[in-house]
Each structure stands twice: as structure tokens, then as C-alpha cells.
Amino acid sequence: MNRSDLSNTALSVSNLAKTYVNGRVALKGISFAVEQGDFYALLGRNGAGKSTTIGITCSLVKKSAGKVHVFGIDIDQDFGRAKSHIGLVPQEINFNQFESPWNIVINHAGYYGVHRTVAAQQAEKYLTKLGLWDHRDTASRRLSGGMKRRLMIARALMHEPRLLILDEPTAGIDFETRLSMWEFMQELNQQGITIILTTHYLQEAEKLCRNVGVIELGELILDVDMKSLFLQLSQETYVLDLVLPAKGLPDRLQGYMRLIDPTTLEVDITRGSSINQVFETLSELDIHVVSIQNKSNRLETLFMELLKNEAESIRASQDA
């Protein structure tokens, strides 16, 4: 990737490879770029290479080969300056659990050269925003799991990073807290902060991210925008709750409609078809729908298809 290509990217990864000392190959030369202002989902199964990629970008892991640029800065040339633009929310809790949230965020700001008086203002802003202000002097080990996650987000924002890397930020937290965190992440992105999100909650990625990369066995098997990804879906299944119990379905509908129980109907809609046709047909049969939802998350379906295809191609290449 040349210099001009890098001018608009927040993160550019080129032929990045990592082989650990024990011989395990974590990354096999992946390349991708995240544009400035993007909300990018980096997906993959456990051990696929996501955290290794993040670790290399943040200097927690030494790369074996390849190039990484953060806002055009080559990490091999000036890692310090590159790191000053990054805020990391790691997968595992990694703050001193005996320290108070206040000290944790203030010290973090200090590591980035933020003066203590400025850091105090920032701390108040983010601890309040993330609902931790009342707990600022509590030993952080006494915080709930959700609070600890939010504390790591507050900490990562203390130096006003331009690139925020969130490694499974909502893992293990309740749905209500997760929703408020989604809202907060969207707000940050709207303010211009580029966000890279890794998550196993694909609904989260679908809701928040504009672009998506999928890593499988150390290789990037997909790097595409979310809209074009959903165009790849050949069929979606919807679950319809009915107002009154249905007695049965005519044979002509059996191919794409199924009665799960008298008040629950499953409908397969192929790409290009209109869901209005389904409602028209049901109205003719005097079947009325009270609510409708996707049977499974669209991204989940695609993700599983992708991994299945990848596994098949690996098997085929091994057989060959």
C-alpha cells in the first residue's frame, strides 16, 4: 500500500504474519484497511487471530512479518506516535483491581502525557458518561462485571484517541447495559472516532458496524461492507406470531411456510421476493399476524455459511 493510500486510513494492515514461539501460526499474512471514521467489525472464532492482530497493533505482541500503519504512521518507524492515537479496550480485565477507578483513569491519562488537571476533567466527563462517577473512589475489584467493562472504556478514552479498538467490550454483561454501551459507541463514532470492534454477538456487529472483516485460521476470508454482505443472503426466515390459532396451511404454501404451533408460523423469503406477498396470501386465508421477527440474526447466518464454506475449501485442498 503506498503513502497516498494510507492518508485516509485509520489502520492499515499489510501482509501481517505472526508465528508464536511454540510454532503456532496465528496470522498468515492478512491485509486490510479501516478508513478514518469507520465502524469496523473484526469477526472470527476464538483463536482465529483477531486478538493477535489487535495485540500487534497495540504492541502487546511482536509481529513476525508485515506492515501496520496507524493514521499513516508506520509502527516500525514511530510506534510511540502511532500508539498515542489508539485507545484499547482489551478482552480481559487488565487494570489494578486494588486501585480506584479514579486513579486508574488518571494514571492512564498520565501515560499519554495528559496533564493531571486536564486528566481530572476528562475523568469526570467519562466516568459520569459511563455511570461510574459515584463509584470513582471504590476499589475497582468491588465493581460489577459491567462496571469493570465500562471502566476499561472510560480508561481508553482518557487521552482522546482517534482510533478505538474494542475487543469484545460487551462480553458477559446484561442486555440493558449492552444497549447503553451500543448507544455510547455510536455516539463516539458520530464524533469522528474510528472504531474497530471484535465481538461474538453478531447482532452487535450488524447493528453498529458499516464494514466487516472475518478472520478464520489466521486468514482474512472476508472484508466487505455490511450492506453488500447482506445481499449475499439467498434466503431469510421470519417467525410470525398469529392473532388467532390457524387450523392448517394449504399444500401450495407448504414449500415455504411451516406452522410451528397453531399461533406461530415460519416463512422463508428468498432474495428478490417481497414480504408483502406473504401478508396478502395470509390475509386471503384469514390469517392475521400480530408480530414478525427474523428467525436468526442475518449476520449469524452468513457467518456460519462463510465458516462452513471455508472449512469445505480447506478440506478440499487437503484432499487434493
Binding site: 497495540c58 504492541s59 502487546l60 498515542s84 487488565n94 487494570f95 494514571n107 492512564h108
Partner: peptide
């Protein structure tokens, strides 16, 4: 051991 050395490692502190 508690991994909070990572706080410093990911920062630009030389």
C-alpha cells in the same frame, strides 16, 4: 501477573 502492565505497554511510554 495481573496484566495491568499492559496499560503501560500499549501507551507511548518509552
Amino acid at each position: 501477573f495481573q496484566r495491568f502492565i499492559e496499560e503501560i505497554m500499549v501507551s507511548p511510554v518509552p
